[in-house]
Nucleic acid binder design. Structure first.
Length: 286
DNA sequence: GGACAGGGTACAT
DNA sequence: ATGTACCCTGTC
């Protein structure tokens, strides 16, 4: 396929690791692990990694650099991690993994649908919503690309429309939150100006948003790089690594520990531990 | 084929 | 601070 691609310098970046690390669920892998098609906001594009450079659809250079957070000081971030064995192993295994900058509503909505779901199914639901209620923004090769439906669009649907996409009980949560946003009762942009604690509280007030989802949104959309989402994978890692012989380690204790131990870029540390744990498990299986 | 667990949340105790 | 129901799908 003929594509007009332009280079973007991308040192310390691993495109495949980043797209496979459970942050986003709508990218399409093309020929191999280095070529992907997807949508950033409303813009369809192709991204190919060739060594220390990305080659992207012409005109999308700045958009890509911003989305993949190529400006994050990755050396400094990795150097800030604690130097224990688990962290050192994860850091080496996930070299080039970056925490990306997602559009607010898209990230919030996607993680509302993610609870108690495996990645494969989150992806199915995400694509369903895009295809049925989003906007067709382009076609690359054989892949049709759609933007994520706006809060207005989802607010106008019924729970049944959403359940048809396999959302189950998440449908009511997504719908209720979409309506709060669409009616202007919640201003996602305004949350940017709040400090971490206030932003967390504002997100948690939304239906379907508990501590885990709120922290994911803080980390992946609001660029709060210290936000530390605790899911079942991370919880296992934390207990097995840092609380081996302790008997009763409460959820509160884990939160308190993870908020301080991993430092100012705890969210990055979490992402590295998470991705490494999942990679190891998957390799161990096959 | 039927269990079963899977990247939580909300609500009750 | 812990226990439980909740909808649906891929997997064995």
């Amino acid at each position: 396929m003929m594509l007009d691609l332009r280079p973007v310098a991308a040192p310390h970046f691993d495109l495949a690791a980043t797209l496979n690390s459970g942050q986003v669920f709508h990218w399409h892998r093309l020929d191999d692990n280095n070529v992907w098609a997807g949508v950033i906001g409303e813009t369809p594009l192709v991204v190919e990694q060739r060594g220390d450079a990305l080659h992207v659809t012409a005109g999308c250079e700045e958009l890509v650099a911003r989305y993949f957070a190529l400006d994050h000081p990755l050396d400094e971030i990795c150097a800030s991690f604690p130097n224990d064995e688990a962290m050192t192993t994860a850091r080496a295994a996930c070299r080039g993994l970056r925490v990306i900058r997602q559009p607010l509503w898209e990230c919030l909505a996607t993680f509302i649908t993610s609870s108690m779901k495996q990645v494969a199914h989150i992806r199915t639901m995400s694509l369903y919503l895009r295809v049925h209620f989003g906007r067709h923004v382009g076609r690359i090769g054989a892949v049709d690309l759609f933007s994520y439906p706006t809060s207005d669009r989802i607010a106008a649907l019924t729970a049944g429309d959403l359940r048809a996409g396999g959302l189950g009980w998440r449908a009511e949560n997504l719908l209720a939150t979409a309506r709060l946003v669409a009616e202007g009762r919640v201003d996602l942009e305004a949350i940017r100006s709040l400090d971490d604690a206030a932003a967390l509280a504002a997100l948690r007030a939304l239906p379907g948003v508990g501590p885990k989802v709120a922290n994911c949104v803080l980390l992946f959309a609001y660029e709060r790089l210290g936000a530390f989402p605790i899911d079942v994978w991370i919880e296992r890692v934390l207990r097995a690594t840092y609380f081996q012989r302790k008997r009763k380690v409460t959820a509160g204790r884990l939160r308190e520990f993870s908020a301080t131990y991993f430092g100012p870029f705890g969210g990055y540390a979490q992402q590295y531990l998470f991705h490494h744990a999942r990679q190891s498990k998957r390799k161990g299986k096959s």
